[in-house]
Design a protein around this nucleic acid. Structure first.
Length: 215
DNA sequence: AGTCCGATCGGCT
DNA sequence: GCCGATCGGACTG
């Protein structure tokens, strides 16, 4: 893994890193060609204290071992018939990470459609949908970003006009952790999961037109 | 009457 | 997590 990438993934608290990932490009090399897209939705999972995290109360098994790896490690786990993509943050042995929940496709739309024959934003507007469209599998688990078929480009290639925050999806009955505002997304982007149609920004999909124009 | 949209619920490997 | 079925409400003409 590159020193830059390792450094990035321990350079700030995990929720802050989850925000910084919005607009970053991911690339996935396959025998059939290259797939790429922009991250538009993330969720932070903040270790043993987080009742929604796989590492809650220090849980450590063969399935979640990747959580304890170096910053920039890929953590893939299976939920039903889908596989979910996470990037590990903080120093080794600190089991925090970021779930990638939405990606706006860039290159390789035809290949994505072969993997997941669904029209419109539901091609990649959920954590299980995007991994299916990209053709990612559990084989990526515990690999390092930019060392294998999956890479992340830093810094961001696109800039959100506005970052919205909410509670994480699918975390019931976990008290304060159910309500903790640890989900981040590009406001108005149609590839965000569970977005309502009226809030979609049809002009720029929630991106700044002029990248130089920052807050 | 018809369409669209959002919310909810049950089934599924 | 995702999907399809279902229900109701808002809007249209």
């Amino acid at each position: 893994m590159s020193p830059e990438l390792t450094q990035f993934f321990k350079s700030a608290p995990t929720p802050e890193l989850a925000k910084q990932l919005l607009g970053c490009r991911i690339r996935y090399e396959t025998p059939a060609g290259e797939l790429s897209g922009f991250i538009v939705e993330t969720e932070a999972y903040v270790g043993p204290k987080d009742a929604a995290a796989h590492a809650f109360a220090g849980r450590r098994t063969h399935r979640n071992e990747a959580l304890y790896g170096e910053p920039g490690t890929i953590y893939m786990f299976q939920s039903r018939q889908y596989v979910l993509l996470n990037f590990i943050t903080q120093a080794a042995e600190v089991p925090e990470g970021i779930l990638i929940r939405g990606v706006q496709p860039e290159n390789g739309l035809d290949l994505m459609y072969q993997n997941r024959a669904v029209k419109g934003p539901s091609l990649t507007n959920g954590p299980g949908k995007l991994t299916q469209a990209f053709g990612m599998t559990l084989a990526l688990n515990q690999k390092g970003l930019n060392e294998d078929a999956l890479s992340l480009e830093l810094p961001a290639a696109a800039y959100p006009k506005q970052i919205a925050t909410s509670a994480r999806i699918g975390v019931p009955n976990k008290g304060e952790w159910t309500d903790a505002p640890l989900r981040y997304f590009v406001a108005g982007n149609p590839y965000v999961s569970k977005i309502t149609k009226k809030t979609i920004d049809t002009e720029t999909l929630g991106w700044r037109v002029d990248p130089a124009e920052r807050n």
